[in-house]
Design a protein around this nucleic acid. Structure first.
Lengths: 208, 208
DNA sequence: ATCTAGTGAATGAAGGTTCATTTATGGCCG
DNA sequence: CGGCCATAAATGAACCTTCATTCACTAGAT
C-alpha cells in the first residue's frame, strides 16, 4: 500500500512546518517533530534521510503550495495594466496566506545544501513566470515603457514578499488590501503606465 | 586602558562576522570564533554575555556602518531626483559591501530576543530616514507625485536589500552599477518623476 | 601585593542518529 | 473461516558527538 506512505509523509511534513514556524529549524529537535506528528523518532528517519532533508522537503512543499495557488488570476482585465495589477494582487494575497511560511523560506534556505538551494531558485523563477508574460505583453502593446523585464518582475516579487518580510512595519497602518492598492499603483507607475485614479486616491498619507 | 578593550571587542566582532558569513550563526561554535579571532574561548566571554549577544552585536555593527555611510551621499545633486538617485545608489553600494552580512540580518534576526529585534527594527527605520526626507522634499516641490511616503521609501530599501537577497539572480547578467542604474530609473519613474534619459538608455534588455 | 587580561581543559546539557525489539498488515493454505 | 507466517511499519531507550559555559589558573602591569 502506497497511500499509507504518502499520507504519513504529509503528516510528518505538516508537523515539521508547524514546529518550525513556532521555533525555527535549528531549535526544532527531531524528538519535538516526532511528538508533534504523534509518532516515534525512529519513524521520521524512515521517511527522511535526516534533519536537513526534512527542512528541504518542508520548504519545497511550501513553495509548491504557493505556486499551485498562484497563476489563476492573470485572466481578468482587458488592458495589460489591469491584468498585471490583478495578478500582482493575487500574488500578494497568496503571500499573505503563507506569510509565516514565506518567512521560514527566507530564514532557512541558506541552511540547505547547494542542490537544495538550486531547486528552490528554480521554483521561484518559475513562479514569477506569469508576471513576466504580462509585462512583456504590456511592453509589446506600448502600454509599458521598454525596460529590464527580469528586474521589473522580480521587483514585484520582492515587494510581494515584502508584505511578509516587513509585515511589522507595513501592516502597522495598512490593511492587506490597502497595501496591494498602493503597491499596484506604484508598480504600474514604475512601468510607465498611466495610473488610473478611478480608485479613491489615498488622502494625506504624506503625514507621518 | 580602554583602547585595548575597544580594539579587542572589534577584533572579536570582525572574527564573528567572518565566521558567520562562512557558516551561519548556528553552526558557529564559540570555539571556532575564538580560534578565528586568535584568542581563547574564555576571553570571548569577558567581552560578550554569551553567543546570542555576539549575534546581536554583529548585526548592530552592520546596521551602524550603514547609518554612518548613508547621509553623506544624500547631499549631491540639485533636484530631488538627482539627490534621491544618489542616496539610493549609495545605499545599494553599502549593501553590496556588506552583502553577506545583510543576508545574515534576514536569516538570524528571528533568533534574537524581542528586545534585540526591536533595536534592529528601530535602526533599520532610522537608516531609511535620509531617503524619506528626500522623497518628502520631492513631493513638496511637485517633482514627485503625492504618494505613501513610508511605502515608497521602504520599497527602495527592499530593492536595495534585493541586491543581496536575490544576488544569485540579479547579478547573473548585471554589474552592481547597472543594477543601481536600472533600479534608480525604475524607482524614480514610480515616483512620477520625469526620468532623464541623459544616461545611456539600456538597449535590448527586453530580450531574455 | 593586587588587579586585570588572558588561557584552555573540564563540565554538563542537548539532541541527532541508530538499532534491537515490538506491533500491525495481508496474503495463503488447510 | 481461522490460524500462520513473512514482511513492513513503528517504537523509544541508549549512544555518542558537539558545543556553550565555567573556573582554576598564569602572566604581566601598576
Amino acid at each position: 500500500m502506497d497511500q499509507r506512505r504518502v499520507r504519513r509523509r504529509q503528516q510528518l511534513l505538516d508537523a515539521a512546518i508547524r514546529v518550525m514556524q513556532r521555533t525555527g529549524y535549528h531549535e526544532m529537535s527531531m524528538q519535538a517533530l516526532a511528538e508533534e506528528a504523534g509518532v516515534s523518532v525512529g519513524l521520521a528517519y524512515r521517511y527522511f534521510a535526516g534533519k536537513e532533508d526534512v527542512l528541504l522537503a518542508a520548504i519545497l512543499a511550501i513553495l509548491d503550495a504557493l505556486r499551485a495557488d498562484l497563476p489563476v488570476a492573470a485572466e481578468s482585465g482587458s488592458t495589460a495594466s489591469e491584468r498585471l495589477a490583478s495578478a500582482f494582487g493575487a500574488y500578494v494575497r497568496v503571500i499573505d496566506r503563507y506569510r509565516d511560511a514565506v518567512l521560514l523560506t527566507y530564514r532557512e534556505s541558506a541552511t540547505l545544501s547547494t542542490e537544495g538551494r538550486v531547486q528552490i531558485k528554480r521554483l521561484e523563477v518559475q513562479t514569477a513566470g506569469p508576471l513576466a508574460v504580462l509585462v512583456r505583453a504590456g511592453i509589446a502593446s506600448g502600454e509599458f515603457v521598454d525596460c529590464d523585464v527580469e528586474l521589473a518582475v522580480h521587483d514585484m516579487v520582492l515587494l510581494a514578499h515584502g508584505w511578509a518580510l516587513k509585515h511589522w512595519l507595513f501592516a502597522r497602518e495598512r490593511t492587506l488590501e490597502q497595501y496591494i492598492e498602493s503597491q499596484s499603483r506604484h508598480v504600474l507607475r514604475a512601468l510607465g503606465a498611466p495610473v488610473n485614479s478611478t480608485s479613491p486616491e489615498q488622502r494625506s498619507e504624506t503625514g507621518r
